[in-house]
Simulated scan of single mutants.
Amino acid sequence: MITPDYCRLMARYNAWQNRQIEKALQAVSLEDLKADHGAFFGSILGTLNHLVWADQMWMSRFDRKFEKPEVGVKGSTELFPTLGAWSAERFRMDGVLSRWAAELHAIDLTGSFSFYSGSVGCEVSRPIAPCVIHMFNHQTHHRGQLHAMMTKTGLEAPVTDLFLMPDEE
Rank of each mutant, 00 (worst) to 15 (best):
S114P: 04
L155R: 04
L109K: 02
C7N: 11
L79Y: 05
T82N: 02
H147I: 05
D55H: 11
A39N: 08
M149K: 04
P130I: 06
N18S: 10
D55G: 00
V52K: 03
V52C: 12
V71I: 10
D167N: 13
W58A: 00
L33C: 04
K34V: 01
C122G: 06
E123I: 01
D5G: 08
H141R: 12
W100D: 01
T110M: 15
T151Q: 10
H37V: 00
G84K: 10
A35T: 10
S29Y: 00
G42Q: 09
H141Y: 15
Q56M: 13
F40S: 13
S117H: 08
M1T: 13
N49T: 01
A157V: 03
Y6I: 07
W58Y: 13
C7D: 07
G95E: 03
T153E: 05
C7M: 08
M59E: 00
A106H: 09
A27D: 06
P130L: 08
R143W: 05
R99V: 09
E78G: 11
N137V: 09
W86L: 03
L97R: 09
E103M: 07
L9Y: 08
K74W: 04
I107A: 15
F62I: 10
F136P: 03
M59W: 00
G46E: 02
M150G: 01
A54S: 11
L104N: 13
Q20T: 02
D94F: 07
L146C: 06
P4L: 07
E156G: 04
H134W: 02
E168A: 13
F163Q: 14
D63S: 11
V120Y: 06
M1P: 14
K65A: 15
L25V: 00
E31A: 06
M149T: 09
H141S: 10
S125N: 09
G144F: 00
M150D: 02
V96S: 08
S76A: 10
L155S: 03
Y13G: 10
M150E: 05
G75R: 08
L9F: 06
P158R: 03
V52N: 11
D5V: 07
M57S: 05
R143L: 05
E103P: 10
C131T: 14
R90T: 01
A39T: 01
K34R: 15
G118H: 09
E89Y: 10
M149R: 02
V96M: 08
V73C: 00
A39C: 07
V52D: 04
L30M: 04
G75D: 12
G111H: 12
V159F: 09
E78M: 09
R8D: 04
E22R: 12
S60V: 06
H147Y: 14
G154V: 02
E78S: 15
P130V: 05
F163S: 14
E156D: 06
M165S: 07
A101E: 03
F66T: 15
M10K: 14
K68T: 11
L45M: 06
T151I: 02
G84H: 04
K65R: 15
Y6F: 15
D36I: 03
L25Y: 05
F66Q: 15
D63Q: 10
T47F: 00
I2Y: 10
A27H: 12
